[in-house]
Each structure stands twice: as C-alpha cells, then as structure tokens.
Design a protein around this nucleic acid. Structure first.
Lengths: 194, 194, 194, 194
DNA sequence: AATGAATGAGGATTCATTCAT
DNA sequence: GATGAATGAATCCTCATTCAT
C-alpha cells in the first residue's frame, strides 16, 4: 500500500543506504540493487527517484558534504568570536563522532575518486574545499595576517591527509588523535604550543 | 611474430599501461581489454601473464611504490648526512617530475581506494607508510629528539594531504608548490623559517 | 509485455528446455544462451531465476527424477497388492513413453556423468537409487524372501544397463523391448517363465 | 634436446594422461593444457601429435577398449574349451583390477556420453558391444541354444549396468562384488546356482 | 507509489588452436 | 622435435535500466 508523501523519505533512505554501502565496501562498485535492498525497496524504485546510479552517488556525496557543513556551522555558532576557538571548531567538526564513522570516512575517500571522473563530483568537492579554505582563512586572519591564505591551504591539506590516513587505519577511526594531530600542526603554524 | 623472452617485456608493458589507464581514467573501472590494447596485445595475453585483473592492479601498485622507493633512495644517497637535507630529499622524491605526473598521482589515489577492499593492496600501502615513517623519523631524530615519531606522523599526513589535493587540481600537478607546502610545514615543526 | 506470477512458468520452461537441450545434444556442453532461447527468453533472465548454470542443471535433474517418481507411484497405485504386478509396475514406469523419449534418456545419461563431479547431483542420484532399491526390495520380499535385497540390487543394475544401452541405440528407444528384457531377468531371478 | 622416435612414447603418454584426467575429473571438461602438463609436455605438442582435442579423446577411448579386448583374449586363451569357464573369463575381464580402477571406470562412463555426440565414438562403442555380444553368444550357444543371442544381450546389459553403478559408488570400485552380481545373473539365466 | 519482469550491453576469463622460432 | 607466444571465439554472469501492471 503505497503512501503519499513518501518521496522525501525514500530519497533519504536511499541516500543513507548509498553512503553506508559505499563506505562499507570501500568502493564505488556497489550495485543499485544492493543499495535499494538495504533501503528497503526495489531497485526500480531507486531509479524512479534518482534516474540513474550516478545521480544517487552525487546525492550521497552532497549529503556527506552537507552534514559536514551543518556540523561546522553549529560549532562555529557555539565558538563565539575568538579566532583560536573558531579554528578549533572547524577542525573538530570534521572529526566529530557523527561524521567520523568508518562508513563516512570510507565513503569520503571514494568520493575523491569519483571526483576524478565525474565533473559534478569534482565541482562539489571543489566547493567544499573553497568553503573550508574560506572559513579557515577568515579565522586565521587575526592570527596570521597576510599569511592566512597559505596557512589555510596547508591546514586544509593537513586535515585531508589525516583524514585519508584514518580511512585506511585498521581499527575504528580515532577522532581525538586525528584532531590532536591537526591542532598540533595549527599550533605550530600560528606559533603556539611547541 | 612471436619472439622468445617476451614475458618480462609484456609484463612491464601491461603494468605501465595499467598505471596510465587507471591514472587517466581516475577509476579502477578500466577493462582488461583497454589496458591490453594500450599495451599492444590481446586481453587473453594479459590474462595469460597475470591470471586476473586484480593481480595486474597489484603489480601496477607495486610498481608505483617501487618507483617511489627508488627515487627516495637515490635522493637520500645524494643528500649526505645532513638531517635537514635528508628530510628535504625524502619530501622531494614524492614530488619529483617522474613520479608526480598526472597519471601517477591519479593512480595513487585509486590505489588508496583499492586498499580499502583488497587486503594485499592494503598491505602494500601499509608497507609504504611504514617505510616513509621510518625514513622520516630517522632523519628527524637529531632535529626533534623524542618528538621525532609524532612529527614524522604529521609530516607523512601532510605529504599525503598535499598529494591528494594535487590529484584533484584542475591543471597539471605543481610539484614545486606541493613541495614548498610540505617544507613549510616541516620548517614550522622543527623551528625554522617562520 | 510483462505479467505477474511469471516465475513458476519461466522456471518450468527453462527446466524443460534444459532437459531437451541436454538430451538432444547428449552433452552437458549446452550454453545457457541456447537453453534460454529455446525457452523463449534472454539468458539474463535464466540467470535471474536460477543464479547459475549448475543450478539449472540440477533443477532439470530433479525434474527428471521427480517425473519418474510420479510415474512409479501412479503405477504402483494401480497395481494393487500383487507383488508380481507391483514389480512389473516399477519396471514399466521407467520405460513408459513419457519418460522414455530420446531426450529424456539422453539427459539421464549425462546426469550420471554430472553426478561424478557435482556432489548435489550425486546426492540426487543416490536418492533415486535408494528409493528404487527400496521399492524393489519391498515388492520382492514375498517372492524372494531373504534374497530380496540382492535380487533388487541386480534388478536395479539391469534396469540401468538396459536404459544405458537404449540411450545409445540408433533408432528411437524401444520401451517394450527394454521392458521385456528386464522382465525376463526378473522372471529368471524369481523362478518363472524360463 | 628432442630425441628421435619420441612419437610413440609421447602419444602413449598423452593417451594415458587423457584417460587419467577424464577419469579423475569425471567429465570431458578437461583442458588440453591439463592433459599435456600431466603427460609432461606443452599443449602445443599435444596438438602437434593429435591435431585436435577430439582425436585425443578418441584415441583414449580406443585405448580403453583395446585394453579390455586384450584382457578378454588373454583370459579366453586360459579358459580352454569349457563354455562356463569362457563366460566367466569374459565377465571377469571387465572387472579385473587393471581395468577396473576408478579412473578407467569414470572414463568409461564419460565415453558413453561422448558417443552420444561424436559419431566416431559411437562407432567404437558399437564395435565393443558387438564383439562382446558375439563372444557371449558364442560361449552361450552350448548352454542356451537358440536363446543364446537374447541371453547374451541381457548379460551385456547387466555388465554395463553393474559397471555404471560402480562408476558412481562412493568408495573404490569393488570388482569382486561386481563380478559376483553378473555371475549370479548368468547362473540364473543358464539354470545354475539358485 | 511500487515492483516484478525483462533485456542489452559489457566484461572477466577460459581455451583450443596456430605459428614462428 | 618442441615450445613460448599469441589470439579469436566463446561463455558465464552481472547490472543498470526500462516497462507494464
């Protein structure tokens, strides 16, 4: 008995199932059938809602980036005006338990790969990187002055690098350690905590 | 016109074609047929020599890691005893023109993904990471003392992060800029050049 | 023009086509494509329903054995209590026109071969042999007493031997002659009709 | 260093390897490569000597039939003139240890299948059956008179049936039991040993 | 809204067979 | 005499996608 207004529910379920499936498999080699089954529906319905597999992947990617963005904004809101606190908030957002689960980390990495062959994915990723850079630069301005952009670039790279390494670690990802590594780099760049 | 002793030649050609194909496509979704054709032979022959697609991928990965190792050793040999020079040599090896071509960088990223689902790939990557960490730690010992291991970990993450970002850059990868970013991080960690 | 509830229809059509194809070819070397085409569908659909070629073969084998079992039970039901009549019924079942067509006989032989390499096929065949032996032994008890089991074993072998020879005969299999041969053996074993 | 006069040796080795391979696998699905390797040579050489896979199979079949014929003649020679002894000799030949090994029995069965699709194989098998029938009929003449041909036919079927069942038995084939079963049938047909 | 039915296209893999050496 | 090299031709199987219900 199909119900009305199912569309958003179905879409969300599919997107979630996609992220989980990709993250768990560590590959983009997941079938629409698998995803749909995990989301409790037929693959035909998945196509009905997303039209094509790639669109489903992009929606999943968008979701991951959106979740991250939401987390960042929330933490920035709580961080107040202090630049150091704002930087810490941005960094912490990426390693917060919600977004730093194994599936999400695994999915993130595969999205980097997707970005190499799918222009829209590349655009999404570039957008994320620009926003991150902007946030970091803004927060760094009072602390690093003219060096802010280049420090932000390095900080962004550091975040990605640490993330990447966690994606391949054996055990469950360790958010605290990851965060500590990035903050150590940051402290060094802005002349603290040596 | 079959000749004798073709095996090593064919294998090398296939490995090279594999790296190129994966790097160019930015995906592991390349067919054995494509690769074989690029290497100038039938897909059946590729299977004859490698048995299965995965073995071909692993051979390609091994090659990339080997090439990197060779580069590192060569530069370390030329760097002499000075710790700072040795660190610079290790960093520079990763961004040297031979290994920092677009295809190689793209392939490298996909290998990270492969490592998520193929144990042997994971092992290879872990081996590379351990060697890198060991090299860095050793060179850092005189400069950072007890901090050497953690500095090495961060430096390794930074290298990966910068590499990752280059993999997605629009233009051809910029080895010099990448190297500069990593060295800036290093300088900061060991108290120079701010 | 897809309809609902096609599955049993398709499965049955595939099983029938498989028996025909194997029987006609006299080999297990029939492609899924051939079978599917003969059953009026794509090979992909055959895989959809059976998963793998072997499963299709086993289903065909099961069908042949089931058909035989049905025939036996029907004839036993009609044979009443008389042991001699029951034995004749069992023998006749194997050579009844429905099951003694060239394709079925040919298929039967190839299933013997399949049983040599596929455990499940071996199990099915063993089951058939046990049932046949049990039926024969039971019916022979009043006529052969303690000798019943060994007589049943020989009778079973005779049935198989006659079947085997018909499978290779030039013309269409001759059920009446085959049956007569087996009954002659039986008569001899239980002391009649010499 | 190729030697002269290798041809008969190579051919024999290939034929033997073929029988073994088919018997062991219980299928005709053995590759020329496997067989050639087992015979200690390249598959190219196998083709050089036999031209095609089917010819190799036929040669193997011929060998099996020849071996059987040799055995029969040897035992008939030793049996003297007594009809009963001659019949026993013919029967025993089929179940003699040399020819009643698992591989040979398995191969025999697959050859029956081969005969269904390869005319030359059918001819070979028919030849074997005719000779067997002739031998049996001749020996039966003094014992069964005009009934000899039909008794011979049944006896042949019995031999095949018992052989077939041994081919599928779990353990190693039991020649003695098989022979006993056939002889029991024979005794019954010619009025002995009940 | 939802799905079972259905398929075309494609890809990995196998293998008999050929050929130059 | 012998073989490594090489391939074309299959074949199984998977999967995204479409469609009628």
């Amino acid at each position: 008995m199909p119900k009305l207004g199912m569309e958003p529910i179905r879409r969300a379920a599919l997107v979630k199932a996609t992220i989980d499936a990709i993250g768990r498999a560590g590959t983009l080699d997941v079938t629409v059938g698998e995803i749909a089954r995990a989301a409790g529906m037929s693959s035909a319905l998945a196509h009905h809602y997303f039209g094509a597999k790639e669109a489903l992947f992009l929606a999943a990617m968008r979701q991951v980036l959106t979740d991250y963005g939401v987390e960042v904004r929330a933490r920035l809101g709580a961080a107040g005006k202090d630049p150091r606190a704002r930087l810490a908030a941005i960094v912490a957002a990426g390693f917060a338990p919600q977004n730093f689960r194994r599936e999400v980390v695994g999915a993130w990495l595969t999205f980097y790969v997707l970005a190499q062959s799918v222009p829209e994915a590349r655009r999404l990723l570039a957008l994320y990187q620009r926003r991150l850079a902007a946030n970091l630069t803004h927060a760094l301005r009072p602390l690093a002055g003219a060096r802010a952009p280049s420090v932000a670039a390095r900080l962004g790279a550091m975040i990605d690098g640490v993330y990447l390494r966690e994606a391949l670690g054996a055990g469950p990802p360790d958010g605290a350690a990851a965060e500590a590594a990035v903050l150590a780099h940051l402290g060094c760049e802005i002349g603290e905590g040596r």
